[in-house]
Design a protein around this nucleic acid. Sequence first.
DNA 1: CTGTTAGCGCTTTCAA
DNA 2: TTGAAAGCGCTAACAG
Lengths: 350, 350
Amino acid sequence: MPQMTLRDIAYALGLSVSTVSKALRDSYEISKDTKERVIAYARTNHYLPNRMAKSLKEGKSGSIGVVVCSIDNSFVSRMLDGIDGVCAQAGYDIVIMQSKESLVQEKSCLKQLEARGVEGILISPSAETIGFEHLLALRETGMPIVLFDRISERFESDQVGIDNYHAAFQATEHLLANRYRRIAMLNIGLDIPFARLRSAGYLDALKKKHLTYGKQLIRPCWPDTGETLKDRVRASIQSLFELAEPPDALFTATDQLSTLSLSVLHEMGHRIPEDIALIGFSNTELADVLTPPLSTIYQPALEIGRLAAEKLIGLISGRGLSEEYETVILPAQLHIRDSSRPGVKVQVNG
Amino acid sequence: MPQMTLRDIAYALGLSVSTVSKALRDSYEISKDTKERVIAYARTNHYLPNRMAKSLKEGKSGSIGVVVCSIDNSFVSRMLDGIDGVCAQAGYDIVIMQSKESLVQEKSCLKQLEARGVEGILISPSAETIGFEHLLALRETGMPIVLFDRISERFESDQVGIDNYHAAFQATEHLLANRYRRIAMLNIGLDIPFARLRSAGYLDALKKKHLTYGKQLIRPCWPDTGETLKDRVRASIQSLFELAEPPDALFTATDQLSTLSLSVLHEMGHRIPEDIALIGFSNTELADVLTPPLSTIYQPALEIGRLAAEKLIGLISGRGLSEEYETVILPAQLHIRDSSRPGVKVQVNG
DNA sequence: CTGTTAGCGCTTTCAA
DNA sequence: TTGAAAGCGCTAACAG
C-alpha cells in the first residue's frame, strides 16, 4: 500500500477519521482504550502522517529555507552543518538553495522557498546583492528572515556574522608589525557589503601607519564570463608583480581567494613569505599542513550557523517580538602561521 | 496580504476559481482574453501558487530527499553541488539530511523524508549501515532510491560510485612500484561495503607481490565515544610506529583519514615521504599546496552527484522502467605527488 | 468520549 | 468558454 491514511485506520478499526486523528495526537477527549487500539494499529502498520496535508491544513510547512552562494565551499558547508543541527533539533527540516553569486538566481530561490511555504529564511546574500528590496518585500509578507555570514548595515534585520572591518584591520596590522610595507589586497567585488568592510579595515590600518598608496594595491577579483576565478587571481597577482614597486605582502579577503592565491604563487615560483607574505580569510582545517602553513583569519562557521538558526526559530516561534532587530557580531580569530612571518628583505632596510 | 490564492484572483476578476486555475495553466478551454486578464492580474499582484496545496492534490511534492553522512565534508558537499544542479534544473528542490554515520539517524532521516513526501531518495549510506532492509522496505512502498558514493553489492539497486577495489589496488601498486614494502592502511570500520573493497584492493596488491603481512598493518579508525577521529588516527599511527617493524608507507582510505594523517604525522615530527610515504583517498583542491604535496586518489564528486540525480529523476519520471538495476562505476584518478615519491631508505637497500 | 462537518488551496471531472 | 463541485489527508469546531 503506497501511503496509509487516517481513513484507512478509521475504517479498519470502525472509527471515524477525527477520532483516529485525535487519538494519535493524544487528545484528552479520547478514551485510553481507543487510543491504545489506534496507536497499536498505526504502529504495526507503519502509519506515517502525510506532512503535505498537515502543512496545508496548518498553513505551516515545518521547513526552513536556506540560501547560500554555493554549497560547495567548506566554510559554507560548515555553517550549514550548524544550521542543520539546530533545525533538526527543533523539528524543522531545511531546504537549501544556491544563488551561485547571482542576484537573479537569489531572487528565484527566494520565490521558490516562499512558494514552498518555508516558515522562515536564512540567507547569506549573493555577491551581486547590493540592494535589499527583495528581502524587505519578502519580510513585508510576514516571512521571518535572518542574514548570516554576509551581513550588512544597509539592511535593517536580524543578522549573525563577524566583525569584518576589525578582522581585516587586525590582519593588516599584523603584516605591518612584521614590517611588510607594500601590502596588496585581493578582494571580490567592492560593492559587496562585507567585502567593502574588509577593504575599509585594510585601508584604515594602512592609513594609521601613514602609508599612502591607498587603493592602488587593491585588486577586485571577479571572473569575467568564460574565465575561472583562478584565472582572475592569476591575472591580478601578475599585475601586482609587474608594478614598478611590487608588493611584499598579500592580504586575501575570502576563503577561495586565499587558497587560490597560494596555488598561484606556487605556480609562479614565488617563495612565501620570502618573496611575498600571505595572510587571508580562510577556514580550512588544512592551514597547518599547507606550504607554508598559512596565516589565516578564521571565522567560527559552525557557531554562525547555529546562532542564525536559533535566532530564526525564535522569530518563527513568535519570540523576539521586540520590534528591534539584533545583529550578533562574533569575533574572528587571527591564526598566525609561517606565511606571514617577518621576511628577510626587511632586514635589508632595517 | 500574507498569501494570495486563486480565490482572491477569482473574486477580484469576477471569475470562478477553476477558470482562474485553468487560465494560469494555459488551458485550451479558456479564452485568450480571459487568460490575459488573469495572467496580468496574477503578475502585478505577485501571485504565487501554494505548492503545499498543489503537492497534496497531486500527491507529489516536487522535492527529492538526500541523505549523507555529513554535509560538512568537502567531498560530500561537492557531490551535493552536482545533485543540486541537476535537480534545480529539473524543477525539484532537495531536502538534505545528515546521518552523522549513525544507522538510527539514517532511518530517522528516511522516515522524515518519506513523511514529507519526497518523490525519490538519494542516499550515501552511513558507516553503520551494513544491512539494507530499511531501504528495501522503503522501496517496496514505491519510493525510487539511488545509492551514490557508498555503493554496495549487497543491495540490488541503482547505484553510482567509483571502483573502490581497483582504486585501492592501484594506489597500493604505486607504492610498491616506488619500492615501499611495509605498507600500512588506515581505514574506517571494516564492515562498511566500500571500506571493505578498499581493503580488499590493498590486500590483493600486497598478495600479488607476495607480501605476507596481510591484515596486520590495517588499522580501522572508528572513534570511541568521547574521542575524536583525530585522536583515533593519532593512536593508530602511534601503534604502527611502535611495531618491531614499523611501516614505510601509509595508505589512507578516506578523505578525512588522509588529511588527518598528514596533520598527525606533522605533529609527531615524521618526515614525508622520507620516514613514511603517504597516499590516500582525497578530494581536496589543496593537495598541491600541502606539505608535502599529497598523492591522492581523486573521486569525481560532482559527476557522481550529477549522474545519481539524473538517474533518480529518470526513475521518478517513469523512465528506467527496465526492471534491471544499473550500477554506474566511475573511474577514480590517481594523482601522484611528492608524498609518495620513491623514498631515501630505498637506496640503502638497493 | 466519539462522530459529523467544514475547509486549508489546488486540480479536475462534469455540467451549463 | 466558463462554472460548480468533489476531493487530496489532515485538523478543529461543534454536535451528539
